[in-house]
Design a protein around this nucleic acid. Structure first.
Lengths: 195, 195
DNA sequence: TTTGAATGCAAGTACATACTTTCATAAATT
DNA sequence: AATTTATGAAAGTATGTACTTGCATTCAAA
């Protein structure tokens, strides 16, 4: 976070924090202004409408780096190492978008499509990449895979479940627990998928 | 669903359907009345307030059967069969509460505690039961488990992720896919946890 | 047949929300 | 020093929401 945020930056930050916690509809512009430390009128001067405010916040904070680039660079053909890289990369990207994903999951009548799809985009990507990876590794005799689609789905859902649980701020999953989970779950899948 | 529902039943059904879709705050009493095919005044005659309406709907539709009873009855000491039973039971119970869990996940400023905890109660239960189960099975030399807590967490998060994905009505997971997932994921874990 | 119960309809109340307009003030810029 | 920009404060508008009151209608029960 920049040391001396502008008025607009403060508003965007307050927007994303409050909407992640309460959802779009349940967050009022009055609350956003209060949290940002500005007058409510100022909020409308900068962004026009509540809907445009969310769109601006989305564009400001959205981390759009795709799994593919990071995944291709990390691909080594070693199942254990690759699954570790995949899992860590996934949680890293999901965590960068954690607040936008919270907003997406809580839903609303008037969310932009980009926001609505935020929760499912990277999970879908992970599943597709892993299915392709398992198919390729199977061709090289490095893994035994009867059903790469479902196995990739299993791995993705496990990490998706872990991430969703970490959104719960009341009983947050510690970073230590998440790291233990990543290591142990990759160990389990490596053993399960090895010849 | 009863063949000839009373007015109250129709209201409760409309309540849970709409709130699961849109969340508590984003659902108006006007919309509920419309969906139930009754006048809005009738809604308040039956339930008093919107908050009491949700509480009544929760009490009406909540499936409270605990994992423990079903799990103890199904326990056989065969890892593969037991994991299958566990996974199917879990999805069965979660699915019966799917709408209440949707409401819980979407959140709101004024949800009763019972509703708020709905999403995490059974996952927590599954993880605790499985951790105990793995510890017991390890004592009998039937599984190799270095870290039963994290392994149970992995299995639970995988099923939780699958369930969360099935809440997405736009791109629903088919029952066939879910069954394939349950069978394949149990196969993976059985292999991973066997000596 | 009469009475009671349940519901619909119309018209409201109190409050809240998103947003606008006008004027004042302070700080930055020219 | 004057002007411009940005923001705050006050007062509003339009609309919506949860909920209430009073009266009418219909159906069930006595």
């Amino acid at each position: 976070m920049i040391a001396n945020p502008t008025t607009g930056e403060k508003i965007l930050l307050a927007t994303i924090n409050l909407m992640a916690e309460k959802g779009y509809d349940s967050t009022t512009t009055k609350e956003i202004a209060l949290a940002a430390g500005v007058n409510e009128v100022t909020l409308f001067r900068h962004f026009g409408t509540k809907e445009k405010l969310l769109e601006a916040a989305f564009n400001r904070f959205h981390y759009g780096n795709e799994m593919t680039k990071l995944f291709n660079e990390g691909l080594k053909g070693n199942l254990h190492e690759d699954l570790l890289t995949l899992s860590r990369t996934y949680h890293n990207i999901m965590n960068r978008n954690r607040k936008l994903i919270s907003i997406s999951l809580k839903g609303s009548s008037t969310l932009p499509d980009a926001v609505l799809q935020e929760a499912s985009r990277n999970p879908k990507h992970l599943k597709n990449l892993l299915a392709d990876y398992l198919t390729a590794m199977s061709s090289q005799g490095k893994v035994v895979t009867s059903n790469p689609e479902i196995q990739a789905l299993s791995f993705m859902w496990m990490n998706f479940g872990a991430f969703i649980s970490s959104l719960n701020t009341k009983e947050a999953v510690s970073e230590e627990t998440l790291n233990e989970f990543i290591e142990e779950s990759v160990r389990l899948f490596t053993k399960a998928l090895s010849p």
